[in-house]
Design a protein around this nucleic acid. Structure first.
Length: 296
DNA sequence: GAGAGTGTTGTAAC
DNA sequence: GGTTACAACACTCT
């Protein structure tokens, strides 16, 4: 579920709590999460994080050793910071329904860690800890050297929401392909950061259907879609991303963009702009939502 | 209770 | 090279 705005929100929420702290314990709770780095424990003990970076949906934790820890949250990955004073009990699941606090509300109470879906725990020398939860086990935590990191970073296209995604590049890329817009915009090699939610939302803002072939777009439509992609990501970051079920930031807070969704998961409900019912189809193998009246 | 669907991405096949 | 289908997994929903 986490797309660029959600991963960026996790990064921002985690950054003040982990940089400079020395790792004193590493506890893998599931081998699949560290499948790429089976000797993670020995490599991390005694190290500290020197920063917390992000490229597209990938979180990068640079280490004092010069190597980096990289993590992908995939569908259900979460990071939680544990200040060592978590209230225990209550037994609420971390599936999101109980995480209701918005950015400016009091912090939600986190459940005791580790729990059923905690896959990796890092303890710091000051008694605090960082927990990686991942119900579906698609996510991973991997240790990479600088030479291993470079090609990974270079494999991503220009990032959506930044000046790196220029109008010319976007227009040429989209109009030069016959795949549906959905597939083009989701392709992280072409442009990085959009996921299923924000592709549908951007297409609605630009009034183009996500199943339109890229090469059928007029220049004006491509221009509108570029602007929509850039803005939807910035807007979502500004409110901490979108929470349906599994996403929360490192302190357990939900994202506020769910209140701004125009089409995603609104199938059967009237379009806010025209009243026509939002429809849902499958495009490029993904659930796809659009307004049949507003979007051409 | 069974089966379908789920926000990501890498891989294989066409 | 571009595009599409599917698998990875555990859960929720119908």
């Amino acid at each position: 579920m986490p797309e660029l705005p959600e991963v960026e929100t996790v990064r921002r929420s985690l950054l003040p709590y982990i940089v400079g702290k020395e790792i004193s314990s590493v506890t893998p709770h599931h081998p699949k999460t560290i499948r790429h780095s089976p000797h993670l424990t020995e490599a991390l003990i005694g190290q500290s994080f020197t920063a917390l970076d992000r490229i597209a949906k990938l979180l990068i934790f640079p280490l004092s050793s010069g190597d980096s820890l990289i993590t992908h949250l995939k569908m259900t990955g979460q990071f939680f910071y544990d200040n060592g004073q978590s209230v225990t009990g209550g037994g609420h699941s971390m599936t999101g329904e109980n995480i209701t606090a918005q950015t400016k509300s009091p912090l939600p109470t986190l459940p005791p860690f580790p729990h059923r879906h905690t896959r990796l725990s890092l303890g710091f020398t000051d008694g605090t800890a960082l927990h990686f939860n991942d119900m579906r086990l698609f996510g991973y935590v991997r240790l990479v050297s600088p030479s291993q990191l470079t090609p990974i970073v270079q494999g991503y296209g220009p990032e959506v929401g930044t000046p790196a995604l220029t109008h010319d590049y976007f227009t040429t890329t989209v109009r030069g392909r016959r795949a549906p817009l959905k597939g083009i915009l989701l392709n992280q090699k072409l442009m990085a950061g959009l996921g299923n939610i924000y592709v549908d939302e951007a297409c609605h803002r630009a009034r183009v259907r996500p199943d339109r072939r890229g090469q059928t777009l007029t220049l004006a439509e491509a221009h509108a879609l570029h602007a929509a992609c850039q803005q939807v990501i910035r807007d979502a970051i500004a409110v901490g991303g979108t929470t349906f079920q599994y996403y929360a930031d490192a302190l357990g807070r939900s994202g506020g963009y769910v209140d701004q969704l125009q089409v995603f998961r609104r199938d059967g409900s009237p379009c806010f702009a025209c009243g026509q019912l939002i429809v849902k189809t499958k495009c490029a193998g993904r659930g796809t939502h659009f307004c049949p009246a507003c979007q051409q």
